[in-house]
Design a protein around this nucleic acid. Structure first.
Lengths: 362, 362
DNA sequence: CTGTTAGCGCGTTCAT
DNA sequence: ATGAACGCGCTAACAG
């Protein structure tokens, strides 16, 4: 019986079931009692899996056996508190509905999980600006060891102080992994020019994220470099989803003299655009050629198959996760900028002549 | 200076920066010192947001002010350890690539987040059976307060002991939220029968989850009830993704006398099937009518638009989350089975006559 | 080789 | 109205 301070002992939990098959989960001390050793020994044996010196073999066996019997599982919170890490990383995304997201999330998830970390998904689609920051603020205190932020760098100001962060698809922060969005817009436009188009439109995003600004800049630069004058009438902004594509189709058909080709800033829009144009009687690529950025899985299966800049979402996610893990292991990479390659995939939506079906995607 | 036990004091952290702008995050005791009160007072003021009696107004202000100055954030792990909850729930899904998942995830996320919980996403796509269970096992100890499991009930055995769980789309466990998959298969088949079809095929899943078994059972029952003999040749099993749809298209075109209609067990397959059939020269619904289950966003934009049983993924997710929260608040609902309605959405892919485009989805 | 115990940061009871 | 101290469960430093 120990006596501390003023000599009083307060019992928070009156019940002290010594039974080993209690409904309460087993604790370290329960295992220690069951195995007839101290908690330190149990901790030593169970934490260093297999690589545990100092403790005799028979003792180890007794401990492992006892833990098994009691169905013991380390208490994450207690362990985390002691070790000062939660083994959790957060992933902040603006919109889980974009078909670009699932592979990106899986890329992050695969890497962090195989390294013992859990993934906290922070889908900010339905949140206002302040909520995202507040949400992360809460997590700051021990909740997460690091953070990956896709396309929402602006929403987080000083609240990220002293928290390891890796960004995705950003241009004014680091460390970051992204593809060259300007080059993507440029190459797509250039491709359409090579196909003989001069009146090329651009369907942009109504949210002003850096990656979208760069895509548009690439489009504009390609026109300029080819000596083609820009026509502001041929540019529009819609929401980044299927609805946006539907609206873009209406926009295109509203012209007396529509562009002969359009660059779409992202597949999420193109996926709505193509079927909508088809229903409005616009033939692709005969009446209008279409090219887009992302190359999500379904882009190869639109009618006709969609010419795209392929953005490797899974690789981007896993790369970001790997970078974050390096930071968590102590490496400083404050200024690292990782740019992943984005090949141009030419399909029928932009080809003038070759109309034979049945080749792509099957 | 206090003396406990053998009278020795070990200093884990030698440095004791009393500066308020240290790089280390501020702790409760730092705020207490800054405000000139005890930690108990600070805890009292900061935990009960605004609704804090007992403490005088000026003291409260001093505390709040000090916390603000030091950029104090409660340490999740410490708080969780003390309160015996992590304020985190897990969501286990078999495959984030299925277009049914994003709205479901968001449904869960919205509800839990607005109740102060974080969402740990456990995407088991790339994991073998044991890994899923191991993963959850680790989380068990304090890591999560509850769990939502979609379509993977079999993978988890006794490891879920004493952990609040809500299932989605399961048939042999509870509490659960699901739609009536058998009715879905039944109504779709019945619809095709009403459209005049007799030779109706079924494209099933090659993984044997209950929901898929029930969908097939509904299809079979509808045929039986209509007095149509089942033809095993008209049933196949493919992987639940776009590739599966592509393979299903090849399967259909391999018949000399193909079925005049098919029920597809899920949109993920149908999304690959439709364009593939189109490329193989099969006209829909003229040569073959198609109907599917899920009604994901893009189902309204296929060519032609896809007849579906609409499954409200967001509602299912949010319903499961609400049920879990009720359990976490102490309500027992061990046997609750929540079945959400699934309307039949008839579109052009199954209509024999009405071929006018431009009505659906725009 | 094993046991004892401080302390991670917080919430809370009891005493003042 | 406020403060002192315990303990949530675990790891690690140190004693034996």
């Amino acid at each position: 019986v120990k006596t501390v301070g003023s000599g009083k002992t307060i019992h928070y939990r009156k019940k002290k079931t010594h039974s080993s098959s209690s409904s309460k989960p087993a604790r370290l001390r329960d295992v220690a009692r069951e195995a007839g050793v101290s908690v330190a020994t149990v901790s030593l044996v169970l934490s260093r899996a297999e690589g545990c010196e100092r403790i005799s073999k028979p003792t180890q066996d007794r401990v492992v056996d006892a833990a098994e019997r009691l169905d013991y599982h380390t208490h994450c919170l207690a362990r985390g508190l002691r070790l000062q890490h939660s083994m959790q990383v957060g992933l902040v995304i603006p919109n889980i509905f974009h078909p670009y997201m699932p592979p990106l999330i899986r890329g992050v998830g695969d890497v962090v999980r195989s390294n013992g970390y859990n993934l906290i998904l922070l889908d900010m689609s339905t949140s206002d600006a302040g909520e995202a920051e507040e949400c992360v603020s809460t997590l700051r205190g021990g909740g997460i060891d690091g953070l990956i932020i896709q396309g929402m760098a602006d929403e987080f100001g000083p609240s990220l102080k002293n928290l390891p962060v890796v960004y995705i698809d950003e241009y004014r922060v680091a460390p970051v992994v992204r593809f060259d969005a300007e080059k993507a817009g440029y190459e797509l436009t250039q491709h359409l020019i090579h196909e003989g188009h001069r009146n090329i439109g651009f369907i942009g995003s109504d949210v002003q994220r850096d990656t979208f600004v760069m895509r548009q800049r690439g489009y504009e630069k390609a026109l300029t470099d080819a000596g083609i004058e820009r026509n502001a009438d041929f540019m529009c902004e819609v929401s980044v989803n299927v609805e946006g594509g539907i609206r873009a189709a209406q926009w295109i058909t509203s012209f007396e003299q529509p562009p002969s080709a359009v660059v779409v800033c992202t597949d999420a829009i193109a996926l709505g655009l193509l079927p909508s144009l088809h229903r409005l009687g616009v033939r692709i690529p005969l009446d209008i050629a279409v090219a887009s950025i992302d190359d999500v899985e379904l882009a190869a299966l639109t009618m006709p198959p969609l010419t795209c800049i392929h953005v490797p979402a899974y690789e981007i996610g896993s790369c970001a996760a790997k970078m974050l893990l390096r930071i968590l292991r102590g490496t400083q990479l404050n200024h690292e900028v990782n740019i992943v390659p984005t090949p141009l995939i030419i399909r029928e939506s932009s080809r003038q002549v070759n109309q034979d079906s049945g080749k792509e995607g099957i």
